[in-house]
Simulated scan of single mutants.
Amino acid sequence: MRLILLLAALLLPSPALAWWEYGHYTVARIAEDSVRPATRAQIRRLIARSAALETPTCPIRTIEDASYWPDCVRKLRDRFSYSFPWHYQNVDVCKPFDQASACRDGNCVSAQIERNQKLLADKALPVRERLMALAFLAHFVGDLHMPLHAGDRGDKGGNDFAASYGVIAGRANLHSIWDGYLAERGISTPAAGARGILAALMPGERETMRGGTVTDWARESWEASRQYAYGTVMADPCGPKPDARPVIGEETVRALIPVIRTQIARGGLRLGRLLDDALS
């Protein structure tokens, strides 16, 4: 029975989570490892008061927990339903980059990164508000660096684009593959986690990655969505959808591992910069 349930979980991945837990944890760990000591101390002081959030089913004990909290509280439904549109922005990869149309009224991931950084920096706010801002900021920076949260082809970030990850088919789609299977494979190859990803960067790459604006990062991920998420399963990323369900096989996975690791590194280092700016 346990084996059947495990297979069912593999064949029916949930589209609700972004980078699943592992991707968010790794982005957050890179961020905390890269911030100034004073910033790290402030993060830990805030997290020590996480009971103020009154979300006992979604506790925050570490920055990794904080980075996953916005997905965890989805289970509380009406209490946090206002935040559901903040995890993504569906910018058409087959048209000129147009973030404004996807961010009306601030309901998109880029706008919420900027908003929550300001809230985190405001020491006049109650601890509860700043804790929520820390969690949302950590999560949304991770979300923005998952290409299918930054650009799509009008298919709900690839959720409506059926695809197979090797032999895993079922209800798998382009979004769930990038969200989970590819992220886990990329982060764990080689198996050294956040520190392994940072150690692989060339001298000077860290500072280069930390540069730019949130809009610059959104455009970069939008381009990655077209070039890699769609470009590896279609000859023309903006052409007709293939009749046959595309299969992302081992050769393609190996080619995409450096892309995944770069996106995770960018997310972590940029989150670290935003945290330094807000807290130091």
Rank of each mutant, 00 (worst) to 15 (best):
T55M: 10
V93D: 05
V93H: 07
E64H: 07
E54Y: 13
A102F: 04
H87K: 08
K95Y: 00
S81L: 14
C72S: 09
P59A: 15
L53Y: 07
D98A: 06
W69H: 04
F80R: 02
V91S: 01
A66F: 03
D65S: 01
E54P: 12
K75H: 12
N90S: 06
N90C: 04
A111N: 13
I60Y: 04
W86S: 03
V109D: 07
Y68N: 10
P85C: 00
S83D: 13
L53K: 05
D71R: 00
D78F: 15
C58S: 01
L76H: 06
V93I: 15
D92L: 03
Y88G: 06
V91N: 07
S101N: 13
D65E: 09
P56T: 09
K95R: 04
D98Q: 07
Y88C: 13
H87V: 02
A52H: 05
K75I: 08
R79C: 06
A111R: 02
R79A: 08
D98F: 11
C58I: 02
R79F: 04
R77W: 01
P70M: 15
E54G: 13
A100V: 01
C72G: 03
C108H: 14
C108V: 13
S81W: 09
P56L: 05
S81C: 15
E64T: 09
Y82Q: 12
C58L: 05
P85H: 02
D78T: 12
F97E: 08
D105I: 03
V91M: 03
Q99L: 14
L76A: 11
P85F: 01
T62P: 11
K75R: 15
A100H: 10
P70Y: 14
T55P: 04
C58V: 01
I63N: 06
C72V: 07
N90W: 11
V73S: 11
S81Q: 12
K75D: 10
C58Q: 00
T62Y: 06
A66M: 03
Y68L: 14
T55D: 00
Y88I: 10
C103S: 09
V93E: 13
P96M: 05
K95I: 02
H87I: 00
P70E: 09
K95T: 00
S101M: 08
